[in-house]
């Protein structure tokens, strides 16, 4: 019984941290810069565009042409538009509660249904260093704000970058999946074969040989 308790205790020690480690960069992973831009804000001079970071602690930002909005990875931001004449930043208030109340109950704010998916970390061998999502305002009126993802810009660790165009979503209400980068994690083929197959196989063969040798010796 004691041994069983020890075993379960050891197993739990391994498992429990997984519940609380959501904010820790795990081994083999690296942090990556992420932000989003709204490309054609200048085409809507009569509106102010805002990003509200509802979770976990709030915060907001007025989005200007050319701004790349970065945020905490679990913030789940929403983009809003409001007529310039209806916007006074002081009305938002200074506390989290006032801010939350402003964004949730202000009838003059027009929310977009766009889901913004941040990336906080990637595998260490991933050649990407920065991801910028570029969005486009399709339309805005007093009732609705339609924003769609236009392209993603991947900047690699060697300083080069590439743009990938978002595919058209199958359903207009659905946010399309971010296109994959051209450059992906990879090890040289010969190294992968030696590292993942040959070395473990040789080690296992030697272990089995040792065990067989011992058995025949007895």
């Amino acid at each position: 019984m004691k041994k069983l308790i020890i075993f379960l205790g050891l197993a739990l020690t391994f498992l429990i941290p997984s519940i609380v480690s959501a904010d820790i960069i795990e081994p083999g992973m690296k942090e990556i810069d992420y932000c989003f831009q709204v490309e054609n804000i200048k085409d809507y001079p009569e509106y102010v565009f805002l990003s509200y970071f509802q979770e976990p602690v709030g915060g907001h930002q007025v989005i200007n042409q050319g701004d790349c909005v970065s945020f905490y990875k679990f913030s789940n931001p929403t983009i809003y538009a409001v007529k310039k004449g209806d916007f006074n930043e002081n009305e938002i208030g200074s506390s989290d509660e006032e801010e939350k109340n402003y964004f949730q109950n202000n009838k003059k704010l027009i929310a977009s249904g766009l889901s913004i998916n941040s990336i906080g970390s990637v595998k260490e061998s991933d050649p990407r260093q920065k991801i910028v999502d570029v969005y486009k305002i399709e339309s805005v009126d007093s009732a609705s704000l339609k924003i769609s993802p236009l392209k993603v810009i991947y900047t690699y660790t060697d300083g080069t970058s590439e743009e990938k165009i978002y595919p058209s979503p199958p359903n207009i209400t659905e946010t399309p999946k971010r296109p994959e980068p051209s450059r992906k994690t990879s090890l040289p083929y010969w190294f992968s074969i030696i590292w993942y197959i040959v070395l473990p196989l040789i080690a296992l063969v030697i272990i089995i040989a040792i065990l067989i040798y011992r058995r025949t010796k007895k």
């Binding site: 391994f14 480690s21 083999g28 590292w195 993942y196 080690a203 296992l204 272990i207």
Partner: peptide, 19 residues
């Protein structure tokens, strides 16, 4: 030698769950 490369492969290609 028998565990680390395979664990490495699993982590890089199959699952991100380090623990």
């Amino acid at each position: 030698l028998s565990t680390l490369p395979i664990a490495n492969y699993l982590y890089q290609n199959i699952s991100n769950n380090f623990l």
